[in-house]
């Protein structure tokens, strides 16, 4: 589904990623762990096409297409979804409007007609309930005045409605208490399928107790320094990142 070859990227003119290679197959969940400053967010943002992140070397092939040649909206329409670490507030644009506009933009891209208003409302109401969010939430401005937990649940709601093929979760667990973490994890687990893949970027092992990864990668100083099964995350939790790279012990 996704093949990253020797990716090098800059953020704000500073070299952050120094040659990353990664292969993700349909249905797989990959966790990317690493200390602060290791390049986790640069990787997520480069994949989503955010301005300010400049790929200087390497290639990213998504479903046989050159991902890096696509605009952010094209990547989204092709099925890539980035759940933000810090979702922004968009006052004046209601949640329901954003969901509908986004879904229709994706449907249009695939030659489908606009979603029926009634069907759409039913779909959204069902999803919102499973994320323990109030219905009123739909008519409020996107993330406007939401708590940290609500913002993260809102990202999962968008993901559930848009049904992407590749979900990138950027530190989705940060700022969540244990109850909110469970709700978010349940939301993600409900979306797991043999055709949908996940990249979970996280600092802590905690999230992986609830969403079981197939592969764990450790990112340090812009490179993947170790890859392994779920047990790698547990070992990291127990021994710290310094166990992999003594220079990280500080």
């Amino acid at each position: 589904m996704l093949s990253i070859q020797n990716l090098e990227a800059k953020a704000d003119e500073q070299a952050i990623l120094k040659g990353i290679s990664l292969d993700i197959k349909p249905g797989e969940v990959h966790a990317i762990m690493g200390p602060n400053g290791s390049g986790k967010s640069t990787l997520s943002n480069s994949l989503a096409g955010r301005e300010g992140y400049q790929v200087t070397h390497g290639s990213v092939t998504y479903e046989g297409k050159d991902l890096l040649a696509m605009k952010p909206e094209e990547r989204a329409r092709e099925g890539i979804f980035l759940a933000f670490q810090y979702p922004v507030e968009i006052p004046g644009v209601s949640n329901i409007y954003l969901l509908k506009a986004a879904l229709n933009a994706i449907r249009k891209h695939h030659g489908q007609t606009e979603v029926d208003a009634m069907d759409f409302l039913q779909l959204v109401k069902a999803k919102i309930k499973s994320l323990s969010l109030d219905e009123q939430f739909l008519y409020r401005g996107v993330n406007e005045g939401f708590s940290g937990g609500e913002k993260k649940r809102n990202e999962i709601l968008q993901m559930a409605i848009l049904e992407p093929r590749l979900c990138i979760l950027d530190e989705t667990d940060s700022g969540l208490d244990i109850d909110a973490l469970k709700i978010v994890a349940d939301g993600v687990n409900a979306l797991r399928s043999p055709t949908r893949s996940f990249i979970m970027v996280t600092h802590y092992q905690r999230l992986l107790d609830y969403i079981k990864p197939d592969v764990v990668h450790v990112l340090a100083q812009g490179r993947i320094v170790k890859s392994g099964g779920p047990e790698l995350a547990l070992e990291l939790e127990a021994r710290g990142y310094g166990w992999i790279d003594p220079s990280l012990n500080h």
């Binding site: 955010r50 952010p72 909206e73 990547r75 989204a76 644009v93 506009a101 986004a102 933009a105």
Partner: peptide, 9 residues
């Protein structure tokens, strides 16, 4: 960017 990342031009 948030809107673009959801598929909106």
């Amino acid at each position: 960017f948030t809107l673009q990342s959801r598929g909106i031009g």
